[in-house]
C-alpha cells in the first residue's frame, strides 16, 4: 500500500450558496477499503460522485488513479468512468428491458466490445448462474444488487464505489452482498470506497471516515 489511488487537495463542491463539501484533503492508498459515514446531507454522496467522475468539483484538486479529473472533458470523464471505476447504487439501477446478462454486456459494450461468455461467467461468479435470462422485474433486491456488482467489476476497475449498496436490503442479503464484495476484492485487488450510514457495514472496511456538514470530523481504523 505504497501509492495513493485518490488524492484530493482542498476539494470543494458548492451547489449555489450551499456548500456540500468543505475543502477536503483525503488520501486513499491503493487497495484500501474505505467506509464513509455520516448522516443525510453530510456530503458523503457528493464526495462519492466527485471521486467517481459523475460530478465536477467547484474548487480544489482531485486526482484519481493518476488522472487529474478536472482536466478531463465530458467524454473524457465518461471514458474514465468506464475504464477505471465501477459504481454500485443504492437503488440497484438496471435497464428494465434488458436481461441480467445483457445488463452486464452493456457495460462491456460501452467499454470496448461485448463478450457474452465473459458476462455469463461474471454472473456465475456472483451466484446468479441460474438467472441469466431474467429481467430486473423478475429478480429480488439482493439478486439485482449482485447483477450490479457483476456489472461494476466486469471491466476490472481500479476503484469500486458503493453508494449505500445495502441501503434497501434486508440483513441476510446485506451480509451476502458484503461477503461477495470481500471475496471479489481479495481476487481482483481493487480499492473500495463505500458510503453507508450503517455502522455494521462500515466495519467491513479497513478505515472509516466520518463526514458532518461537508467536513471530515473523525477517522478511525478498524482493528484486525
Amino acid at each position: 500500500m505504497s501509492e495513493n489511488i485518490i488524492e484530493t487537495n482542498g476539494l470543494t463542491r458548492n451547489y449555489g450558496d450551499i456548500c456540500a463539501l468543505k475543502p477536503l484533503d483525503l488520501q486513499v492508498p491503493e487497495g484500501e477499503w474505505l467506509s464513509v459515514m455520516g448522516h443525510s446531507g453530510s456530503g458523503k454522496s457528493t464526495l462519492m460522485n466527485l471521486v467517481g467522475g459523475l460530478d465536477r468539483p467547484s474548487a480544489g484538486s482531485l486526482r484519481v488513479g493518476g488522472k487529474d479529473l478536472l482536466a478531463l472533458t465530458e467524454d473524457g470523464l465518461a471514458r474514465f468512468r468506464r475504464e477505471s471505476v465501477g459504481i454500485i447504487f443504492q437503488q440497484h439501477h438496471m435497464v428494465p428491458y434488458l436481461t441480467a446478462v445483457e445488463n452486464v454486456m452493456m457495460a462491456q459494450y460501452f467499454h470496448s466490445v461485448p463478450d457474452e461468455a465473459e458476462a455469463r461467467s461474471a454472473l456465475e461468479r456472483v451466484g446468479l448462474g441460474h438467472r441469466l435470462k431474467n429481467r430486473p422485474g423478475e429478480l429480488s433486491g439482493g439478486e439485482q444488487q449482485r447483477v450490479c456488482i457483476a456489472r461494476a467489476i466486469i471491466n476490472s476497475p481500479k476503484l469500486l464505489l458503493g453508494d449505500e449498496p445495502t441501503g434497501n436490503l434486508d440483513h441476510k442479503s446485506t451480509i451476502m452482498v458484503m461477503e461477495l464484495l470481500k471475496e471479489l476484492r481479495a481476487e481482483e485487488r481493487f480499492t473500495v470506497i463505500m458510503v453507508t450510514h450503517n455502522q455494521e457495514v462500515a466495519a467491513w472496511g479497513d478505515r472509516t471516515i466520518y463526514l458532518d456538514d461537508g467536513v471530515l470530523v473523525r477517522e478511525e481504523r478498524t482493528a484486525g
Binding site: 467499454h111 470496448s112 466490445v113 465473459e118
Partner: peptide
Amino acid sequence: RQGAKRRTVMA
C-alpha cells in the same frame, strides 16, 4: 487473462 484487457485489444 483479464477480460477487460482482452476486450480492449479486440476493440
